[in-house]
Design a protein around this nucleic acid. Structure first.
Lengths: 198, 198
DNA sequence: TCGAATTTGTCCGCTATCGCACTCTCCGAC
DNA sequence: GTCGGAGAGTGCGATAGCGGACAAATTCGA
């Protein structure tokens, strides 16, 4: 009998990874990302060296994995099946904003250029995958009506714009509510979408 | 090569035991000790059943082990070598009071009769061992002058009195400082000690 | 610029913890 | 009563994490 739908991870794995991420988070708040030694992370997390390297290739890999803290909620949010065309396309947005509303998370933008680049890149890739599916599906359904912009570009555009808004929202500790931030994002891309039959 | 002075415990062991004790502590603050199921402790600590039983016989054993949270500081406090006769004898007192000053620890007296009895008994035994050594040493040095009270009784008397003061201090959340509580204890037993050549 | 010290990344034998299955006891519903 | 569900303990094979050793890379003060 193989494990079913719920791929329940070993408690030990979850614990170790969380400890390491938490340690990194707290360190990042104290000093620049590039000045943080792996050893410091290990000490603060109270985790052995070998455990670290059995999960992550290096410090950057650990940082990149914290992406899960950002997009994690999407996995649990029920995919909106109803709503308009763009509702289906941009369903991922609101859950993310909501989860980070009043969140302790230190914005990637406060981590110095290196860290920011790593997180930005990783987040972009994930979003592209996420949005790509939706866009392709929508375009398939509305074959013929599609605009002239290539799908790949459209996807990148949506991902980048979303990240832009998210980062701005986090960095400036904007008084906007999650709802409002979500709406802001939609406003930005709405006309482009409709102009392209989405 | 056997490990030397530092008996460094496996990180995993320390972590597991701490998680379990913390879970018990937090549960005790919410409901009566006797109403707490082992399963609840496991769930809150996020520890597997088998790990629990590889460290503790049962719930009571876990509770008893939390004694370390109370007398732990004594192990790290430097043994006062100087001072008067009674300073040497009662050196354990101040470190304990100091450590619990403003401590989150919920007094054993708030845990219902069962839990109180268990902790009380365990603490008593440890203190008897601790004080026993000192008293015997002191009496050996002052052979002949000793009073008529049997050593065993004297030791029990000191332990019980200390626990009395400690519990009272914790339970009533007395405004007394650690220093003052310590002094109170000493005042209580001082005359008895001097009357017995200590 | 050169060594010493520190950090990085890899490896390995040992063991604590995991997940799971199982029995036993207790207890409330019916 | 007795049935079913839930918690208490026990046992076991699999594995994640341990500590410690190591060479290579890096840092840094003399």
């Amino acid at each position: 009998m193989i494990k079913r739908t719920k791929d329940a991870p070993d408690r030990r794995v979850a614990r170790t990874q969380m400890a390491l991420r938490d340690a990194l988070h707290s360190l990042v708040r104290e000093k620049d990302y590039d000045d943080i030694a792996v050893k410091e992370i290990l000490d603060r997390a109270d985790i052995g060296r070998s455990a670290f390297y059995s999960h992550f290739r290096d410090k950057d890999d650990l940082l990149a994995s914290t992406i899960h803290d950002i997009i994690g909620p999407v996995r649990f949010a029920k995919r909106e099946s109803g709503g308009s065309q763009s509702d289906k396309l941009l369903w991922f947005s609101l859950p993310i904003f909501e989860h980070h509303d009043g969140h302790r998370w230190t914005s990637p933008l406060k981590m110095g250029p290196r860290a920011r680049a790593i997180l930005h890149e990783r987040l972009r890739k994930i979003l592209v995958g996420l949005i790509g599916q939706q866009v392709k599906k929508s375009r398939r359904e509305k074959r013929g009506e599609s605009g002239t912009i290539p799908t790949a570009v459209l996807v990148e555009y949506l991902a980048s714009t979303f990240i832009l808004v998210l980062e701005w929202w986090l960095e400036t500790r904007s008084p906007l509510s999650a709802d409002q931030a979500n709406h802001l994002f939609r406003s930005l891309v709405q006309s482009t979408l409709t102009a392209n039959g989405l």
